[in-house]
Amino acid sequence: MACFNGITASADATNQMHSFKQAMREVSAKPDWLSARHIERQRWNPYSMEGGSTCAISGDNFAIVASDTRMTANDINILTRDAEKIQVLNDSIILTTSGFYGDVLQLTKVLQSRLHKYRFDYRADMSVDLCAELLSRNLYYRRFFPYYTGAILAGIDEHGKGAVFSYDPIGCIERLGYSASGAAEPMIIPFLDCQIGHVTLDEGYEKPALTMERAISLMKDSFRGAAEREISTGDKIHLVIAEAGKPIVQKFLPLRED
């Protein structure tokens, strides 16, 4: 009998504990001092991610930039198959961004108007080094409500050499030989490390020179590899080629559409 009472008592205690925990959950999810408006505001998120990837490679006298043209919502819904993520800002500067497409558009617009004003003031196009610094400051200006984008700025510098600048969302800048950003960044970067950076090659081995043809075919390979595995990358490669002393060339190449 005592044993039977013990069981009822413990079942009772368990029930009490359950209802206590339930009450705790409710009060922490919806405390009295938060109005419905407050709760809604906490839930609201100003950012979204539209996927896609971009990549840039620089050489002795050229810089090539590529991105895919797919735009997705929640990684699986394709919104459009020809969203452009590359902007040619002037004859020697190319900007490519991925991440939150709203911020991509806004950032492009801001930079374009700053370049327009520079041209008006100084009667000359801005150089890529100046533009790189300008972009970094524009990004850091929004330190506490950043543009949610991974930007890459590429072009031909004042010495006729290829240049690639890579950024994080708040304007940390680095000049690199090659860079990638976006959803397929972890798939593209190690491949370029191996093929362009030659990090897996021991000292004393001959390292093939980076010609423009080689850079273009590596770019195609990395996007085809990425499109094979990464679902928000695909549809088309938008390829932009800048060579010192020549006009910028733009191409579209087919990519997987599934």
Binding site: P186, P190, D221, S222, G225, A226, R229
Partner: peptide, 10 residues
């Protein structure tokens, strides 16, 4: 894994 899948694909 992510790094590998990209490289292996190529």
């Amino acid at each position: 894994q992510h790094y590998l899948l990209g490289v292996c694909e190529n």
